[in-house]
Design a protein around this nucleic acid. Structure first.
Length: 475
RNA sequence: GCCCCCAUCGUCUAGGGGACCAGGACGUAGCCCUUUCAAGGCUAAAACUGGGGUUCGAAUCCCCAUGGGGGCACCA
């Protein structure tokens, strides 16, 4: 039974790299009919942010990553919040001290920060005699528990992504397992919990690659089986620097606020470091659950491209039904748009929107025609200029006035025929109308689509205004 | 400083000795379609970091160099 876990510490937001780790862990569980577990790693009391827990839950929910076990969803391996497991770590710390694979260190914190010679520090306390220890203990001196790394030999572990890695034990430091406040460090808690929670595949960022030998040694000291390791490459920026919230890069929540669909973000993020082996790039979470596999994960770090995310977001927007898109677009429609058929507007917008907030700037002209220059009527490709425009607008007015059925199809056929009868290209007829109706050079949809939405009366008013504008300018 | 990891178009990647004068996607440029703009279609420019090996043959295997990244906390 495959069991994976996502083990974030509560920092207040969902980092992009964390989201991907969660995604991969989730997909690995789903693909293998396994169990996906959420564990909260809140062992740093100074860094805990109160509302951060909520951010983790909402972030996972937003991404669609439903966990099978976790806080509030006990599967027999709880509690799933590390700060609620303190006695457990205490117990295993005692066990490992007993085994001789760890020891108490009574050194002062400050003394530890002095730069020592050599890459690895061997703490003097590892040589303390039993008597000395008893003495310090009874004097209730505070201490931390450190792992006793063997002086000789080397440690090898296998990683699904990076292969076999060997490190000399002399390069490993006697890391702290239990802090003086009684809390475990990540280094200890992750090993104890992954074992106790029967995690089969440990998936995490590659920043843990270099400390993994120490975890292996811990597993060995306890006599536990080592889990499968899956270390994930880093996500960086296109200039090669770190992708970090602190440096102003967006978190998952930020991206959603910027108008990216959660499903598009998830789709994009899965491709940063993994590929399906064919040309498919568009994926829903459901589809990924069927095809994701660990052995197609890449080794090298991947740069986050906003351009590609934006494109993929457009793909997801276009894949929506009109109703779904309309629901997402509506919040961007101002009150003043209420008199129009906004569903029709959504229809025009859907294929032209890559990010939701773009909608705002695309629809302003529906409410009011902006001030514009008559140069707007000049258009090479449509063989149009202000003079011709004026002529067409005047000629077309009675035709439109007499039109009974005011919809896109009828308007289009009528105007097309009008052009044919009067020797104009369709584009030459449409350009001035579209311009008069909107006052902008680019609109979602053409002249007739806009006219339909604006309605007969408003359309004719705007055309009349265009005529007056042109007349006064050309006089 | 020490240790570990990585290295294909600008970016994400396919590729796991001959099928590669290296394929796809984003972005960029051009064309087509066309009622402006999109969407869609077509086309173009664009990469195997360098040097040694191994081999009949290397993007693919090995070594070195270079470059990049990560780690060396009572943070995770």
């Amino acid at each position: 039974m495959v069991r994976t876990r996502f083990a974030p510490s509560p920092t207040g937001y969902m980092h992009i790299g964390n989201l991907r780790t969660a995604l991969y862990a989730y997909l690995t569980a789903r693909r293998n009919d396994g169990v996906f577990i959420l564990r909260i790693e809140d062992t740093d009391q100074e860094r805990n942010v109160p509302e951060a827990l909520a951010a983790i839950y909402s972030g996972l929910a937003l991404a669609g990553l439903v966990y099978d076990e976790g806080p509030g969803k006990d599967g027999g391996f709880g509690p799933y919040v590390q700060s609620e497991r303190l006695p457990i770590y205490q117990k295993y710390a005692d066990i490992i001290i007993e085994k001789g694979a760890a020891y108490r260190c009574f050194c002062k914190k400050e003394a530890q920060t002095i730069e020592d010679e050599g890459p690895v520090r061997r703490d003097p306390c590892r040589l303390l005699t039993q008597d000395e220890i008893e003495q310090k203990l009874s004097a209730s001196e505070s201490f931390v528990v450190r792992q006793r790394i063997p002086d000789e030999g080397s440690t090898t572990f296998a990683d699904h992504v990076y292969g076999e890695i060997t490190v000399e034990n002399s390069q490993l430091d006697d890391q702290v397992l239990l802090k003086s406040d009684g809390f475990p460090t990540y280094n200890f808690a992750n090993v104890v919990d992954d074992h106790l929670m029967a995690i089969t595949h440990v998936m995490r960022g590659q920043e843990y690659l270099s400390s993994t030998p120490k975890y292996n040694l811990l597993y060995e000291s306890f006599g536990w089986d080592v889990p499968e390791y899956v270390h994930l490459p880093l996500i960086i920026k296109e200039d090669g620097s770190k992708f970090s919230k602190r440096l102003g890069d967006p978190s998952f929540e930020d991206l959603v606020k910027m108008g990216y669909l959660p499903e598009a973000i998830v789709n994009y993020i899965v491709l940063l470091g993994w590929s399906p082996g064919n040309d498919q790039e568009f994926f829903t979470l459901k589809a990924l659950e069927e095809v994701f596999s660990i052995d197609r994960i890449n080794k090298s770090s991947a740069a986050f491209s906003f351009d590609k995310l934006t494109w993929l977001n457009g793909e997801h927007i276009r894949a929506l039904s009109l109703d779904e898109f309309h629901a997402l677009a509506e919040p961007y429609y101002p009150e003043a748009l209420a008199s129009f058929n906004t569903r029709k507007i959504s229809e025009l917008l859907q294929v032209r929107t890559e990010k939701l907030p773009e909608i705002t700037e695309k629809i302003g002209f529906f409410i009011r025609v902006p001030e514009y220059d008559i140069e707007m009527y000049q258009h090479e490709k449509s063989k149009c200029d202000p003079e011709v425009s004026l002529e067409i607008l005047k000629l077309v007015t009675p035709v439109l006035e007499s039109l009974q059925t005011w919809d896109n199809d009828n308007l289009y056929l009528t105007l097309k025929d009008f052009g044919k009868d009067n020797g104009y290209k369709t584009g030459t007829v449409m350009w001035p109308i579209r311009t008069a109706l909107s006052g902008v050079s680019v609109t979602p949809g053409g002249a007739t689509a806009l006219a339909e939405i604006l309605g007969k009366e408003e359309s004719l008013n705007r055309i009349q205004a265009g005529i007056e504008k042109l007349e006064s300018a050309l006089r």
